[in-house]
Write a protein that binds this DNA or RNA. Structure first.
Lengths: 248, 248
DNA sequence: CTACAATCAAAACGAACGTTTGATCCAATC
DNA sequence: GATTGGATCAAACGTTCGTTTTGATTGTAG
């Protein structure tokens, strides 16, 4: 098959450009013409190689998420094997899940911060086809990590763990998506607070490393926070209002 | 002036419908025709009353954010007056900032969960006019609360506080935006875990209350988490690597 | 040489988009 | 009762969208 090289070049160039433009402007606001124009390929090339604009977006994510979620599953496998049946530590689980992702931000060949920002912004897109796609891509990973957290925190109600997993996903997504919005919302560049050397426009890989360094303690602190008091239960609930063990 | 009633009816009906549709489908994917159609007004009414689609979105947010951020500032004023010059507790600050917002979700006349979801989803939209608009609307509030946190946590580097404020905003935004996506990502309804009575489709006000109950402890835990170890500082940093005080 | 997948330029498609126009309505003003 | 001016209306404006088609050209594998 003459599928050797030119084809892959066009395909990957389209994917790279689409990844960047979808991140910069969002899915709806990015036109096929702007993609093919920036990629210097024919307008018909997208429909030829991918079939449609929706399928293009799916493929942009699939090529990254397939690798990412496989790494996440392998990381969890290794941890559980090393633990030999004992529950993992929450910090290990978070490191495997979020660390694997954040390390992609340091590696341009894996999409770098461009893909991370795209992912963070797209996770909140309301389009139906996007959400069903993510549901399928994430189902196995989320399930495995959810169960690992259940075992790691046996005294925490499982519903609470699911809520906090959701909070952690949000903190990470938003933090990543907003790394170039932060100064807009907060009115100042992060770097120039507290006397940090700020003038340097942080490189993407440096930014990813700094983000991971800051994010992981925050997530761990939130995950291990004391349980909320159940002030008003619609139905008198079973007594599970004990505090969360602080040692982890 | 014959500005009596029909005009305000049309204006507010447009705003209400736009709020809901922008939330459900996003800004770009919501057409003027779908808005005016659902609001049962003429297609030209939006441009007549607001000038453009962009101005409509801004007005949708302005009528809610003006009230919200005024409440936030007043809440902070009251706290600081009661403290009489002493630093506030972080839990008070978070309650004033996030509690004020989350209470909007319980009050349909203030937009309810519809507005909260819209807000959470729109905060990550890349469109320039949206980001500059939010920057202006939030500037004063963010600045005031940032300073309050600086005073409340004098031993924490200010840059770290800004990062964590960003993380908290993200956890909240995403948690709100995703309250109808949660079962997609996690593969299960939150309610039916841990033996909670789940069958009932949670009403929006009940959902808002439950969300606040779960979110606040998580945010506090994250905010007060131990400081990260500075593994690799580009410039050898002043010694501020001490643990965060646990009592708040 | 032949065959076939990949790429191209160009044009067109129908549909949907945000916006504008000019007429019409109607209550308030003089 | 005529006039004014804001509110509403039907209709059309010009543009852009995603997609498809046509026909020619390339480079490589059999």
């Amino acid at each position: 098959m003459p599928d050797s090289k030119a084809s892959n070049d066009t395909r990957e160039r389209i994917l790279d450009v689409a990844e960047r433009l979808f991140m910069q402007h969002g899915y709806e606001a990015t036109s096929m013409r702007s993609i093919t124009g920036a990629a210097e390929v024919n307008l018909a090339a997208v429909n030829y190689h991918f079939g449609s604009k929706e399928a293009l977006l799916r493929e942009v994510f699939r090529r990254r998420l397939a690798w990412l979620n496989q790494q996440r599953l392998q990381a969890l496998d290794r941890l559980e094997e090393a633990a030999g049946g004992a529950p993992l530590k929450p910090s290990q689980i978070l490191e495997a899940f979020f660390g694997t992702l954040l390390r992609m931000g340091e590696e341009p060949s894996l999409g770098g911060m461009t893909f991370l920002r795209l992912l963070g912004r797209t996770l909140t897109e309301p389009a139906e086809f996007i959400r069903t796609f993510f549901a399928g891509e994430y189902a196995e990973v989320i399930d495995r990590y959810k169960l690992a957290l259940f075992r790691a925190l046996p005294d925490v109600p499982q519903a609470e763990i699911v809520w906090r997993l959701h909070f952690m996903l949000g903190a990470m997504s938003y933090a990543i998506a907003g790394t170039d919005v932060l100064q807009v919302v907060t009115g100042c560049e992060v770097g120039d607070l507290a006397g940090e050397a700020a003038a340097e426009e942080l490189g993407d890989t440096a930014l990813a490393r700094r983000l991971a360094q800051r994010l992981m303690p925050f997530l761990l602190g939130g995950l291990r926070a004391p349980l909320p008091r159940f002030e008003e239960s619609p139905i008198t609930r079973a007594a599970s209002a004990g505090g969360l063990p602080t040692e982890v």
